[in-house]
Amino acid sequence: MADASATNSDVTTMSGPRGRKPTRMLTPRNIMLYGTLFVIAVYYLLPLYVMVVTSLKGMPEIRLGNVFSPPVEITFEPWVKAWSEACTGLNCDGLSRGFWNSVRIMVPSVAISILIASVNGYALANWRFKGANIFFTILIFGAFIPYQVMIYPIVIILREMGLYTKLSGLVIVHTVFGMPILTLLFRNYFSSIPEELFKAARVDGAGFWGIYFQIMLPMSLPIFVVAIILQVTGIWNDFLFGVIYTKPENYPMTVQLNNIVNSVQGVKEYNVNMAATLLTGLVPLIVYFVSGKLFVRGIAAGAVKG
């Protein structure tokens, strides 16, 4: 930022109101910058726009126009059809089945995986025992192993347990594969809490669970929210585990969506397909836009080692 406008704005901000807003908007540099950003933003928003407009059009209109043309006559029929009538194989009760399956998979998976991982991270941060770090290292390296290497042995394990193709089996799978990142998240967070607090509680006679529930848990609500966001979007968006460890009537929404859209039989109803796609994307999108900065924190924690 060696150009004149930047130095100017530095001078003016000193006397004027504080803050970092550039004072002159219409410099060539700003026009370029905002112009580029705007064009890129349009590009990123385009698929969302296409989903919305296509899902609101009737089939005749789609055949006449292109994917970007706005709907002339808005109809919500594709949404109704996608939700309650679209067929996958023999079932014609729409995506609602997949939606409720996904909810039934997601809620226990999120709850159990976070519960286990938080206690785990707490044990690793404050109650280190011999060998704990070895297991933790294995866990972190395990996060890099391609799932394809482990899926078949897990089929065997689940079959032995009698849980293969059952929703509870899938819940276990999500708990297992969510563990590395969640444990890391919680371990790092609990490590950052001053140790004096922990020591004081121990002097007062609190035990493992006492400290966890009375001190750590109330102090770490933000990190729980981050973990919930991470898990809700992750589990909702899962396809591979859903298709392997469940059977058709238990398929989560993503699997059912793919089966509806990519089925080879029948006439392609693009509007219904896009309505179904949008419906499936709606849950993570809502989570994303509601959670805002916490989502960023979640993925940053998920991506960067602590």
Binding site: I40, A41, Y44, L45, P47, L48, T233, W236, N237, D238, F239, T254, L257, N258, T277, T280, G281, P284, L285, V287, Y288, F289, G292, F295, V296, I299
Partner: peptide
């Protein structure tokens, strides 16, 4: 938010 929202969507979508 605009650049990041696709990341919330699944690969299927």
């Amino acid at each position: 938010s605009i650049f990041l929202y696709p990341f919330a969507l699944s690969f299927i979508v």
